[in-house]
Design a protein around this nucleic acid. Structure first.
Lengths: 237, 237
DNA sequence: GGGTCATTTAAGTATATACATTATTGAGTC
DNA sequence: GACTCAATAATGTATATACTTAAATGACCC
């Protein structure tokens, strides 16, 4: 969803008028709002202009309209927040810190049983990467990544010690669908060592699957020290 | 964002045509797409109809248009996923499990220094609740909640041992903005006891702030055992 | 080469109009 | 009262048209 511009166009003024009535609670969920006729009379404009404002709000989920019955304030969409899951390098550099990547392992192989489960493919060749992200020489995250070479053959030739796999993929491979799973885990000895934290410290584990159409592109598991990292999601109507 | 209907309307067919060219990678990010003129010629329809399809895709973020220059495939919105943060009761019952709520503490008071920081108010009266959510008699989550009585005076009279505060608020108080913060913490002795897990076990800590306009409505901090709980976010273009 | 400015093009806004679709309403009938 | 069905009123779709706005283009001049 994109925020509509702060324009002075008539349909935008009408839209903002409607929005503020919803936001303020003057119109409550389920309530019926005036008809397009009434709006065009009160604004002295054409019906298409009113319609344009209404359609925008219907598309953004604030209103619902039913033929013959009218247009109604939508029940607030439950809890659906926009969660930004940023590119790690961009995030670190965005904080003004020096970013560094350490490529620990790189393996081109036929999918093992475990790979198949994680990447959700039935067979094929893939690239498995292990890496560690640093912010100002402090470990920031550990990453385990699988890239489906059937979908992204170019990946086989990329130097991932120079560019983090997430950044490279975002820039080169268009994706249409992604799923994220966020949970908390205790650091095992390897994680503790890799992140420079004490054993059993709570970490945020973020798993991500990415598709393009039906093709699996990549699987990533990123581990962050729980005391240094927070995911933030924001919703505004 | 609402998914547009599977309609047969001409502007929807045009929109789907455009969508599939983006999804398939036939049009790559940054690429310029045909002008409205060209579309109206190839579909033999009016410009407004083409425009309607374009506007919908611009609003949903798949396209960008610039005056004089044309319309372009938008760079994929970074990582912006729709994160469903459900009502706990609804979630438990949705899994077919019996839900139970235990109200541990309830305190109506003037905001303490700590309350002010959490709820982000400068003063005023609030309702502080401590509760524990159960799924089939197993502890599911601990919740610390503050409700701003200036914004929601009715809350003072609600029996929160019958209805979980989150559910009640969602049903009764329209909100326009919410922020979530997700992190991982180690269970302290009280948390471990309350959730029936071992001390230091990793937990997902989910904090939520809710507004209506400028008014703070509520703050909630929910703690879930990390090994039993996962937040899932989904994105599709 | 480089700056200026008018031209042109593509999107942005708005209107008036027509007809389609469909849920509601209400009148008429059994 | 309960069913049927036509009228109605609301949104949904589509067209033709006109003017506005802003940026890319290219011609011109220094």
């Amino acid at each position: 969803m994109t925020r509509p511009p702060e324009s002075t166009a008539l349909h935008n003024r009408i839209r903002r008028d409607m929005e503020s009535r919803i936001m303020s609670g003057q119109w409550r969920p389920g309530e019926r709002i005036p008809t397009e006729q009434e709006w065009m009379e009160s604004y002295g404009c054409s019906r298409m202009t009113v319609n344009k404002a209404l359609r925008a709000l219907v598309q953004s989920g604030l209103l619902e309209s039913r033929k013959r019955a009218g247009t109604f304030v939508a029940a607030p969409r439950f809890h659906r927040a926009a969660l930004e899951i940023p590119d790690i390098r961009a995030e670190v550099e965005g904080q003004g810190l020096a970013y560094r990547l350490e490529l620990i392992g790189r393996d081109r192989r036929k999918a093992t049983a475990e790979d198949k489960v994680l990447l959700r493919v039935s067979s094929g060749e893939l690239l498995a990467l292990e890496c560690r992200h640093f912010a100002r020489d402090l470990p920031y995250a550990l990453e385990h990544r699988l890239i489906n070479l059937a979908a992204v053959p170019e990946a086989a030739t990329v130097d991932f010690s120079a560019e983090p796999p997430g950044s490279w993929l975002l820039g080169h491979v268009p994706w249409t669908e992604a799923e994220h799973r966020i949970t908390a885990v205790n650091a095992d000895p390897a994680m503790a060592k890799g992140l420079g934290i004490s054993e059993n410290a709570a970490c945020v584990a973020l798993e991500r699957w990415t598709w393009r159409g039906n093709e699996r592109i990549t699987y990533a598991r990123q581990l962050y020290p729980g005391d240094r990292y927070a995911l933030v999601a924001h919703f505004h109507a």
